[in-house]
Simulated assay, not measured.
Amino acid sequence: MVVGAGVAGLYQLYRLREQGLNVRAIDAGAGVGGTWYWNRYPGARFDSESHIYQYLFSEELYKGWSWSEKFPGQPEIERWLNYIADRLDLRKDIQFGTIVKSAHFNEATQRWLVTTDRG
């Protein structure tokens, strides 16, 4: 399980699926983006140059997106994250509108028990 479908969450979901694992991401939002889904205030933008956030494991993915500026604003960042989710077919493994209420590790079974607001 991956908690969140932002920049890191999408990356983790992709990498874990690539390893052949059955994985699901949980996100409170109605769409991908994490911080960039929720923070829509005027002037919200990357605080580092956009190329730093690019996923470099796929040249096709990297070259398929052109940033409009070095420090793009929230609307463009959210569009990029949707582009990533679509190109990597990640949405099928993301449960949106769900909040993780608790997570407890069971030492005996070596498994996590995760409870959400949906049970």
Rank of each mutant, 00 (worst) to 15 (best):
E59N: 05
L81N: 04
S102C: 09
Y55G: 01
Y11G: 06
A28G: 14
L61H: 08
D117M: 05
G29L: 03
Q110K: 14
R87S: 10
V3Q: 04
E18S: 13
G119C: 06
Q19E: 15
T98Y: 04
L10K: 04
A44C: 15
L113Q: 12
W67H: 02
T116Q: 09
R111D: 12
L90E: 00
L10P: 11
Q74Y: 11
I94G: 02
I26F: 15
Y62V: 01
V100Y: 11
Y37S: 02
G31P: 00
D93N: 13
F46C: 15
D47Q: 14
R24N: 01
G119P: 04
T98K: 09
V7Q: 05
F96L: 03
K63M: 06
L16E: 06
N22R: 03
R24V: 15
G34Q: 03
G33F: 07
R111H: 11
G31L: 05
R111A: 08
A25P: 11
R87H: 06
L88E: 05
T109Q: 13
L56V: 11
Y14G: 00
E60L: 06
R15M: 12
G119K: 09
I52R: 10
Y37C: 04
F46D: 01
Y55H: 04
F57N: 00
S68C: 03
R79A: 15
A28M: 13
N39S: 05
L16R: 05
N22K: 04
L90F: 02
A85K: 01
Y53F: 14
D117I: 09
Q12N: 13
